[in-house]
């Protein structure tokens, strides 16, 4: 883990294109947006994604390239290392963080996790889950944004006794789709949104396609059931990030009994 403060110097209003984001209430509260960034900026994101992809895929956890680092999830993940963010820095910044905290009218502990995911063709569908999970972050002295780079790799490892760590909870999940072939109905790779946890994965209430330069965001609640739906004919790439909030505020909002602990 590391402390990191966004410093791209890029004002968000200068790179956002579409300012008509859609806030929907069914099957649970979520936001979608198309053509999120201006073409030049989006193009830089794609280039940066491709340069990471060129390092190849690893079947073992590897901090330096896309690797099999997620249990029970048929995808390769890449977590950003210090100084390697390039244009992705925008996702680590306070201004980006504040947009979503304001949209969902929630609180934040200022702790972020930002990763890239790659599903090869034929990636298996996941299970419906709600992301109301725990995370551990280092103590911090100021209100700066804190970024975790390895909690996604080892989410099931709570800190050992004596380690000075804070318990926080995932509060908002944001998926940004990029570097994908042109999506057509039938390609799969959507993010399914569900009313029920045991709903068939291929029968979501809503399926958000992985169209380039679009995003999906939702608050992590006991009801935010979602899943990756198998990408039958095209690879599927995305950036995924979580904004966290304090344990107590999460318990007040959703009840401690509804938290899904990684290590249990």
């Amino acid at each position: 883990m590391e402390h990191k403060k966004g410093c791209s110097g890029t004002p968000l209003e200068s790179v956002l294109t579409e300012r008509d984001w859609l806030f929907r209430s069914k099957p649970f509260r979520h936001v979608t947006a198309q053509e999120v960034f201006v073409p030049d900026f989006y193009s830089n994101l794609e280039s940066a994604f491709r340069s990471i992809m060129r390092k190849g895929l690893s079947e073992q956890p590897d901090n330096h390239r896309f690797s099999r680092n997620m249990r029970k999830y048929d995808a390769y993940g890449y977590c950003f290392q210090n100084g390697e963010c390039g244009p992705f820095e925008i996702f680590f910044e306070q201004q980006w963080h504040d947009v979503f905290v304001r949209l969902f009218n929630t609180t934040s502990s200022g702790d972020l996790e930002v990763c890239l995911h790659h599903h090869s063709i034929g990636g298996a569908s996941g299970n419906a889950h709600n992301d109301l999970n725990d995370s551990w972050y280092p103590e911090k002295k100021d209100g700066a944004i804190t970024v975790a780079t390895n909690v996604h790799i080892h989410p099931s490892n709570p800190p050992k006794p004596g380690e000075n760590q804070r318990l926080v909870m995932r509060s908002i999940a944001i998926l940004f789709y990029l570097n994908n072939p042109v999506w057509q109905r039938g390609d799969g790779g959507e993010t399914g949104l569900y009313t029920y946890r045991d709903q068939p994965i291929d029968q979501p209430d809503r399926a958000v396609p992985p169209r380039n330069n679009s995003l999906l965001a939702f608050e992590c609640t006991p009801y935010s059931y979602h899943s990756f739906i198998s990408n039958v004919s095209q690879p599927r790439n995305s950036l995924i990030m979580w904004i966290h909030r304090n344990f107590k505020e999460t318990c007040d909002a959703w009840g401690e009994e509804n938290i899904i602990w990684w290590h249990k």
Binding site: D20, W21, F23, K26, V99
Partner: peptide
Amino acid sequence: QEVVFVDPLSQEPK
């Protein structure tokens, strides 16, 4: 009641 259009940079309440 199903969808609200929001400006991500607006400070005004929905």
